[in-house]
Design a protein around this nucleic acid. Structure first.
Length: 283
DNA sequence: ATCCTATCCTGTAGGC
DNA sequence: TGCCTACAGGATAGGA
């Protein structure tokens, strides 16, 4: 669910509204997230002020005074939710709570608990194993076609699985991978090694375009994703193929198909995205 | 090295 | 209405 645009939306909202606030209390639920941290570690945030935010791929950083960073990943169902005062709701699955000195609250809710919340020394952030594995962030570093072609050389995995590999491009998830491939006319099941450089150029360009357009609309809410204000993202109405099986292709009118690649739902137009590849020079 | 599968967990949609 | 199953945007460990 939450891919780069959704995480970036949350980051921008934190940046605009939560910067400068000082933590009065920091507490964790007793349920374990993907990687458990101790309540004592989390409580290190108390007394510190939020100075800046960052992001790499789908990982969010909140930098605090005193050289400490909150590292977070939304997993499948994670949300960071802000409220100006103590919330009156009785939200289930809240696993981390920051109460600020001004009375506002920031909570991490995650029913499926695939998400990540960790407190680390800012100076050692890049050494965290999850981050050390990541490929370049496509917003910070525009993907380079020749580089992609080189890294994909000889690879037999489906190009769609290649795009989902966070070690190659950090931040593309299941929704946007289908969207990128449709825009570029590349069939998702083609082997990564068979994609020609002009096609990689198109993929590089459309990757940035799709992600930036989705950021402009605060991301895609397929089911659980919400912004910092608990609002859905608006990009869903712009999707060309994702979750549109049987509906007409917005380009050629023929029905969108669903298949499974690497255990993940994949959507494409068989007409606009031929299995053998076409439209970018010969074979 | 690369690829594929199973797995973590809960909520929800759809079939009966 | 209720029960049951299948499935969901992610990432990783481990086996082939």
């Amino acid at each position: 669910m939450p891919e780069l645009p959704e995480v970036e939306t949350v980051r921008r909202m934190l940046d605009a509204h939560v910067l400068g606030r000082t933590v009065a209390r920091a507490r964790l639920s007793d349920k374990k997230l993907r990687t458990a941290i101790s309540p004592a570690t989390f409580r290190k945030l108390a007394g510190r002020t939020i100075e800046s935010t960052g992001r790499h791929g789908k990982y969010l950083f909140v930098h605090f005074s005193g050289g400490v960073t909150l590292l977070s990943h939304l997993g499948m169902s994670g949300r960071w939710l802000f409220s100006d005062a103590a919330p009156a709701d009785d939200l289930k699955h809240v696993h981390a709570t920051l109460v600020f000195a001004d009375g506002s609250w920031l909570r991490f809710q995650d029913p499926r608990r695939f998400g990540l919340v960790r407190v680390v020394a800012t100076g050692r952030l890049a050494k965290e194993p999850e981050l050390a594995r990541l490929g370049p962030d496509p917003i910070a570093t525009p993907p380079d076609a020749a580089d992609l072609r080189e890294r994909a050389r000889g690879r037999t995995v489906a190009v769609k699985a290649f795009l989902l590999d966070q070690g190659e491009i950090a931040g593309v998830g299941n929704i946007y991978a289908s969207e990128i491939l449709h825009r570029t006319g590349v069939h998702p099941a083609r082997k990564a090694g068979s994609i020609r450089e002009p096609e990689w150029s198109a993929i590089a360009i459309e990757t940035r375009r799709v992600l930036e357009e989705a950021i402009d609309r605060m991301g895609t809410t397929f089911s659980s994703y919400r912004t910092l204000w608990n609002e859905p993202g608006q990009y869903g109405e712009r999707l060309l193929v994702y979750d549109r099986a049987g509906q007409p292709c917005r380009r050629c009118g023929r029905p969108i198909r669903r298949s499974v690649i690497g255990q993940r739902s994949t959507f494409f137009c068989p007409s606009c995205q031929p299995a053998r590849g076409a439209g970018y020079g010969k074979k």
